[in-house]
Write a protein that binds this DNA or RNA. Structure first.
Length: 872
RNA sequence: GGGCGCGUAGCUCAGUGGGAGAGCGCUCGCUUCACACGCGAGAGGUCGCUGGUUCGAAACCAGCCGCGCCCACCA
């Protein structure tokens, strides 16, 4: 290590992430470590397709967690020597872009309709050029090792080809079709949205009871509704066939108030006789349930609410052009004037709202494109059922299967402009329809002009192709696809399990003949610290970018991993802090080692790594090497099984509580003495620990690694990012050393506790002796760590801890000691009694496993011995 | 209406059958030559409630209470 570097290391007592991270990121990018070759097979290689963030989005906590997890997995596998590809890209996010641009247009006093389709799309592309990459830059700051050289976009040229190929094939198979059917109309975005984008909210409305006259009678039939405005589209009244009250009326007619339409009275089992009056107004045009009744009885389907959210001409002259809310008022007033309202009462029920625009959904019948799902779902059910695709945590598997087994047709057309325009052309002259990957010239039947469908596809239609479309499908020559498909794992939150994950499984199987990924890992959803949802509008959001600015990317990454769980979690600032503390401690422990551990005497013996192998000499060396193996085993197992919290905390525990608290303290004298063997061991452990930690905290470990390499005189550009990931070396496991050193640690703790209790000065060294010289524990280290001097031979012991006896001196207050001994005696008596009781229980002795009983006997023996000692 | 999950130390959470754990916070003591983002010691839990299974239950079973979330076309 050169003098300048050494001086910097010496002077920097505190790790400064902001000073380090940009520099390290540059080196990773320049080194091309994130850009693997398209070689090898998917079985040997490792790949993840990132859930493409919307072009409109800024990095939020969900991305941060999700990105950290994926990055940890990618880095782990890259270090294992596998070609590891993390496919990056963004989603065109049709509705989100519309919302954003239309807001801008409104501010400018115009609208997309005034602007026109072409100009609007141009504007959207301009927007994407300008802002679309911000999320990508933010992912870099997190340390995400995506392949930034292969970034994709769901509207790029190749991707569009994939989307059109899929549409045409599904059309040819008869899965995609056009139909008049009940859809969720979002007045806010003036488009259809899918069932999955509808959110039901509890709302209290007024339930009106309205009297419909019965034809040729003075009687009335009273129906109940919360939406009187839809009565204009009523085409029947239904009663339950078993309802005695109405049996005689079935087949007769009512007269629709305000309109005068004759409504047949039909019998249908959907009607609950218990609800309201037991008579249901049937509005097939505006209620999904009523549509089913209507189709069963061949009823007319009238639509009175238009796509602009206003009443159509069908609603009658009086109401045409009114908004739904205005029509509601006008109709109630009119009914009241006619004396038709029999009751009004508050009624709480769930009402559909658009997840996108927040507006109340208008169910209406509309001509749209649909995709039939049952055939696609069947194999996608099968692969999850048989665990060909494993879902973790597994409780989500059942939810997935349940949803898939009840899957319904998917409305895929949207009345928007930004997106994949439907590859469908119509001939107005002869009403032919053409579905093709590229535009046909003219109508094949009559030679007429063709007109392309105005609608675009649901954004999720293109997202469903993500894992294979990003790898080059449908090109004949797609080397990335060969090398990296199927991907290994998909990491996402559960809110898009159906919207996205399920559809990828279906499309993947349909178009590639293989599943898109082997594993699905469902992450926690991070809530605000108070347990509420993190949201901008509630003001509960915490911005990961700010957290990175303040604490560093490693701190945020560690914190998020430590927080992650099989269920939703509250954001924990303390865990982020813990990550920051860890980075700082890693830095400082490394300073201790690198500034003091000279292996010059052993130089030239490095094999493979940048430092010579470990040189265990004493029990503590064998102990820490053995403990390191345990940590490697646990961290690796936890990462591989998607238990990130335990991986992070195990790393922290090993490094902090074993390596720093004990081993470094124990070996300091040897280190300062320039012992080359302990220096070699320390450097080797440091290298292993850095590599073990790297997938979780890449920046600080990479930074320290540059110093480690410099200290070892290593040359070249080799970086930790591609360092072999540590593997358990069975030869380094040493149970005897573990037992021995742990005994010394326990002994040290006991002495320290006693010192604290009896109030001796922290710095004072107490006279002590070893009762039995044959005792195995290395009392030398206890002496130093507990500040004892084993040089006094004579005198009566004040206290004893196993073989170690503490002798009287002016530092110790004898009264305190007596009190302490009395307390300890009480504790021991309790313990002895507890153990005796347990062992005298015949049930326990005969039924419990032998080792449990044996352990209990040993405890009893130990306690009795100590008690005798104190009493003797 | 169905489904999933949660209730453990002041806070956030681990802990799936053998003596209650971590981080933060709190108390006491330390300018111990890597780190005060530090070091040492400590206090603090009838493991939601009630029954059951078991030699033994925080853990398994049943019921109850409280709290989330998802799915669902009862006006």
């Amino acid at each position: 290590m050169d003098a300048e570097r050494r001086a910097r290391l010496e002077a920097t007592t505190r790790y400064e992430p902001s000073e380090v991270e940009g520099r390290i990121l540059e080196r990773w990018l320049e080194g091309g470590y994130f850009h693997p070759p398209s070689e090898g097979t998917a079985a040997d290689n490792f790949s993840i397709a990132i859930p493409p963030p919307n072009v409109t989005s800024a990095l939020h906590m969900g991305h941060a967690l999700n990105g950290t997890i994926q990055d940890a997995l990618i880095r782990l596998n890259r270090m294992r020597g596998r070609n590891s590809l993390w496919v990056l890209g963004t989603d065109h996010a049709s509705i989100a872009v519309h919302a954003l641009l239309e807001k801008e247009l409104r501010a400018e006093g115009t609208s997309r309709y005034e602007l026109g389709r072409e100009a609007f799309i141009e504007r959207a592309w301009a927007w994407r050029e300008k802002y679309g990459s911000q999320i990508v830059e933010q992912l870099k700051r997190l340390g995400a090792s995506c392949d930034y050289e292969r970034e994709r976009f769901t509207l790029d040229e190749g991707y569009v080809r994939a989307v059109y190929r899929v549409f045409v094939r599904l059309y040819e198979k008869g899965y995609i079709y056009r139909d008049n059917y009940m859809v969720n109309w979002d007045v806010g975005s003036r488009s259809v949205i899918s069932d999955l984008e509808v959110e039901n909210r509890e709302v209290t409305d007024t339930l009106y009871s309205i009297a419909y006259s019965i034809e040729d009678s003075d009687e009335v039939l009273t129906v109940a509704t919360v939406r009187p405005e839809t009565m204009l589209a009523d085409t029947a009244v239904a009663v339950n066939p078993t309802d005695q009250r109405y049996k005689a009326l079935i087949g007769r007619h009512c007269v629709l108030p305000l309109v005068g339409r004759r409504l047949p009275i039909v019998a249908d089992e959907h009607v609950d006789p218990e609800f309201g009056t037991g008579a249901l107004k049937v509005t097939p045009g505006h209620d999904p349930n009523d549509l089913e009744i209507g189709r069963a009885h061949g009823l007319e389907e009238v639509v009175v609410i238009g796509e602009d959210g206003r009443m159509t001409a069908e609603a009658g002259e009086r109401f045409t052009g009114l908004t739904v809310a205005e029509a509601h008022e006008a109709i109630v007033t009119a009914l009241r004037e006619e004396g038709r309202i029999r009751a009004e009462e508050p009624f709480t029920h769930s009402v559909p709202f658009s997840h996108r625009s927040g507006e109340r959904i208008e169910p209406l019948i509309s001509l749209q494109w649909f995709c039939r799902m049952d055939e696609l779902a069947a194999p996608a059910i099968e692969v999850v059922d048989r665990d060909r695709v494993r879902i973790t945590p597994e409780q989500h598997k059942r939810v997935y299967l349940e949803w898939m087994r009840n899957i319904r047709p998917w409305c895929i057309s949207r009345q928007l402009w930004w997106g994949h325009r439907l590859p469908v052309w119509y001939c107005d002259a002869c009403e032919e329809t053409y579905v093709a990957e590229s535009a046909p010239e003219r109508c094949g039947a009559c030679g007429g002009e063709l007109r392309q469908d105005d609608d675009v596809l649901d954004t999720w239609f293109s997202s469903a192709l993500w894992p294979f479309a990003t790898l080059g499908w449908p090109d004949e020559d797609a080397p990335l696809l060969d090398a990296y498909y199927p991907t290994d794992v998909l990491v996402t939150a559960r809110d898009i399990l159906f919207l996205w994950v399920a559809r990828m499984v279906m499309m993947g199987i349909e178009f590639t003949g293989d599943v898109p990924f082997d594993d699905v890992y469902i992450t926690s959803i991070i809530q605000a610290p108070d347990g509420r949802r993190m949201s901008k509008s509630l003001g509960t959001g915490i911005d990961p970018r700010q957290e990175i600015d303040m604490h560093g990317a490693d701190a945020v990454r560690f914190g998020l991993l430590a927080m992650s769980s099989t269920q939703d979690v509250r954001y924990s600032a303390a865990k982020i802090q813990q990550g920051g503390d860890l980075a700082n401690k890693l830095w400082n422990a490394s300073r201790l080692i690198l500034l003091n551990a000279s292996t010059e005497a052993l130089e030239g013996q490095a094999a493979g790594g940048v430092v010579p192998g470990p040189r265990p000499v004493r029990a503590e060396d064998r102990w820490i090497l053995s403990r390191l193996q345990g940590a490697i085993e646990a961290v690796t197992r936890n990462l591989d099984s998607y238990d990130f919290a335990h991986a992070a905390l195990e790393l922290y525990r090993f490094f902090w509580s074993e390596l720093c608290d004990w081993y470094l303290e124990i070996v300091k004298p040897r280190l300062y003495d320039g012992d080359p063997e302990v220096a070699a061991t320390l450097r080797w452990i440091l290298e292993q620990t850095l590599a073990l930690a790297h997938p979780m905290v890449p920046f600080v470990t990479e930074e320290i690694y540059t110093y480690l390499r410099a200290a070892a005189g290593a040359e070249g550009p080799h970086m930790l990012v591609v360092h072999p990931f540590p593997e358990v070396d069975g030869a380094l496991l040493d149970e005897a050393a573990e037992r021995q050193v742990e005994a010394s640690i326990e002994l040290t703790r006991s002495v320290r506790r006693w010192r604290d209790l009896v109030g001796v000065a922290p710095g004072s060294v107490l006279p002590a002796r070893v009762a039995d010289e044959d005792g195995e524990p290395p009392h030398e280290l206890v002496a130093r760590l507990a500040r004892l001097a084993f040089d006094a031979a004579e005198g009566e012991a004040l206290a004893s801890f196993g073989q170690v006896e503490i002798l009287p001196s002016e530092e110790v207050d004898a009264t305190q000691v007596r009190r302490r001994i009395a307390e300890r005696r009480e504790t021991l008596r309790g313990e002895v009694e507890r153990a005796e009781r347990k062992l005298s229980n015949q049930g326990f002795v005969s039924s419990a496993p032998a080792e449990v009983v044996e352990a209990e006997r040993e405890k009893l023996t130990t306690y009795r011995a100590e008690l005798e000692e104190l009493e003797g």
